[in-house]
Amino acid sequence: MSIMEIIGGTFIIIGSIFLFLGALGIFRMPDIYNRLQAGTKATTLGGMSLILGVGFLEPSWMMKMIIIIIFIAYSNPISSHALARAMYKRKRYPLILSEDKENMDAYSEVNPHEKEEVKS
């Protein structure tokens, strides 16, 4: 094994582990905002690291790999932000565990809560 193969293999293993952890986070977390947190961060780094690893294994593909990495790093946070705002406007309010329920939801000053939760 050459040195490039060792570096690329390490990136690929790290990336696949983070992709798995992101999916596990989506499976385990209790409400949609926490799921978005786990899903977005872990799959972004996981995908970036795995694609960079393939770029190290095959250096002539590196330019296109960098394009895909930049696209993933741009698009993943935007889609999670759009989903979070859409779900808040659909009245799926975030789960709040602490005692101080009034101050923990600052976004309610823009979108006031209504009494009935609408099923979607």
């Binding site: 983070f18 961060k41 872990a42 976004y107």
Partner: peptide, 26 residues
Amino acid sequence: ALINSNLDVARRVLTPSLPINPGIVK
């Protein structure tokens, strides 16, 4: 910051009791 946040997510997901205290700040 991205690497730190991923280690943070990994720690929270792999802990059996799910150590979270969610809320919205501004």
